[in-house]
Design a protein around this nucleic acid. Structure first.
Lengths: 338, 338
DNA sequence: ATGAAAGCGCTAACAA
DNA sequence: TTGTTAGCGCTTTCAT
């Protein structure tokens, strides 16, 4: 079917090794270089990476396992990562495991069979059981976004605790004391970290955390809508809300519009992620921005380093989020009512 | 490193062919089956798909080239497709070419070298030049979302023209005659089809198309915001707007909130895609819903059929969109003013 | 039902 | 610089 190196060898009268060497950056006589190039063109030769992968035991392919591709956060990370990896000759196989631990395990085994050179995972399963299969292979493994307790490997995370701490402290600094929060699922690492940050900001300011001000969503638009509805109903005294991911932030904005509650004037809001959305809102949203593309780039960089040189002590990259100020938070005077 | 079939053979005392046969569904004596299973478990054996791929000239990998992974439309299609493909043992390598024809060509060549068994592409380059490299290989190729003029191959498209025609006809049926439209980039297939449908609905109703009612965005949130601003400014008489993709619909909603223009009461709106967002809006948006997940599933099904049996005449799947009615369109009486 | 052997396309020693 | 050769791990005749 497709032309092979053998065909090039026959066509040029050269040996296999010469072609191979040339293809891998070796030197050949100018005369032969021309012959080879011509044969390649004529026969539409393209290196067979499968054969190369078998021979070198390196597929130049990286596996990625994520809980949900249909999330801007995930897709932005992947975009940033895939870009760099491909530019370096690495393919990316993405497996969406739908936040299902069993599917996650299947995906990992699948990638092991595919002999990916490295694995990037935003883990769903919380104990790292699924990762053992991969660790056996002794290949680079990078955790993103979520840590696994007691599981030591390279990671690229954002400082969620600080992100939430800063956001809530900002609200407190503006005079707010009754601050609602729409958190993520209770069992997700980032969600717990963000709620910790929320609590810590209160503690530091000497404000008691009220249970009724905390609701949990599942990181979807719909749950953002419901979260606001619930918060507003339960807390007439609430003057601000912190929403802990993009989809729920969008839901929150929609719900507030729906309820006729004006952002800033009636209720202050700090959202999460997706600067474009935040800027497009009116008033522009104050948000915690995670450097999604940067995360992807860091992961790619780290992975490229690891596939080249697997040894070395663990690397943990913590990226800072940024509190980007829009106009969704009002100054609350000490004596004013809502 | 990792265990091979040879190891299993040694461990069990059986021959290579027996192991291979068993692994591929062949029959072995019960006694041997147990021995093999045990050895597999002990040695953590996982088939090397690379070697298998080389031998069988089938990698069980499908390449996907899209213009932008960071778009809900694309990511939903991929999610639906990848799900089914992986369940059938096929990996998916996604390449985001950023709507850049040169990057698209690189991606295709890359996938050819990876010896993918099939290619799914939402083409950026409009003449099919980039696809020649792949056609040489004689492997299945499926176009999604966008056609290429004069280029004959399998495709899964939605009926964009009809989608737009229905949406605009619906608005006309409600009494609207001054209907703005936020179209996509002029050179994108779907964008032109949707604008054609817009024009056709006018033609059929005997309403002249006004140039000032047509603006072009680039399928981003921001361009939806700008599109509305522009339309509203230029057309005080406009009573309805049709927005032709999800990101721009979101932008439109945001811009209308910003401008204090009430959806339904002040301006009727028909958006595009993402039912969840539409339902979460207040009032719920009337939208054209493309069956994104279904597209992905159809593509996967078609691809699985083609890799099994490459021959057969071209298949063109056209999926219908659905006009899902929310409450964003008002009835306009013949004599009323805006 | 099982085994021996050839070979998929490539790279890497080694030799020339 | 170039060629010869072995072999990566698997599947697939063809025997047995």
């Amino acid at each position: 079917m497709a032309a092979t190196m053998k065909d090039i060898a026959r066509e040029t009268g050269l040996g296999l090794a010469t072609i191979s060497s040339y293809l891998n950056g070796g030197n050949v006589r100018e005369k032969n270089r021309i012959k080879i190039e011509q044969a390649i063109k004529e026969l539409h030769y393209e290196v067979n990476e499968v054969a190369r992968g078998l021979r070198t035991a390196a597929t130049r392919t990286i596996g990625v396992v994520i809980p949900e591709l249909n999330s801007v956060f995930c897709s932005e990370i992947i975009t940033g990562m895939e870009d760099i990896l491909r530019a370096n000759g690495y393919a990316t196989i993405v497996c969406d495991c739908r936040s299902d631990a069993a599917l996650e395990k299947e995906a990992i085994d699948f990638l092991v069979r595919k002999r990916v050179d490295g694995l990037v995972i935003m883990p769903t399963e919380r104990e790292g059981k699924n990762l053992n299969a991969f660790l056996q292979a002794g290949k680079p493994l990078i955790l993103i976004d979520r840590e696994i307790q007691g599981f030591d490997c390279d990671s690229v995370l954002t400082d969620n605790r600080k992100a939430a701490f800063d956001a809530v402290s900002y609200l407190i600094g503006k005079g707010h004391t009754d601050i609602g929060v729409i958190g993520g699922p209770r069992n997700v690492f980032t969600s717990r970290e963000r709620l910790d940050g929320y609590a810590e900001a209160h503690r530091k300011a000497g404000i008691a955390v009220q249970e009724s001000l905390i609701v949990h969503g599942d990181y979807t638009i719909r749950s953002g809508v419901k979260g606001i509805q619930r918060l507003v109903k339960l807390n007439p005294h609430m003057t601000a809300v912190f929403v802990t991911n993009y989809e729920m932030t969008m839901g929150a904005v929609i719900a507030l519009n729906e309820l006729g509650i004006r952002i800033h004037d009636d209720l202050s809001l700090v959202g999460f992620d997706n600067l474009e959305f935040a800027r497009a809102c009116s008033p522009a949203l104050t948000i915690v921005a995670q450097p999604t593309t940067k995360i992807g780039e860091e992961v790619a960089g780290l992975m490229l380093k690891r596939v080249g040189e697997p040894e070395g002590s663990r690397i943990h990259i913590r990226l800072e989020t940024e509190l980007i100020k829009g106009n969704s938070v009002s100054e609350r005077k000490a004596d004013s009512n809502r």
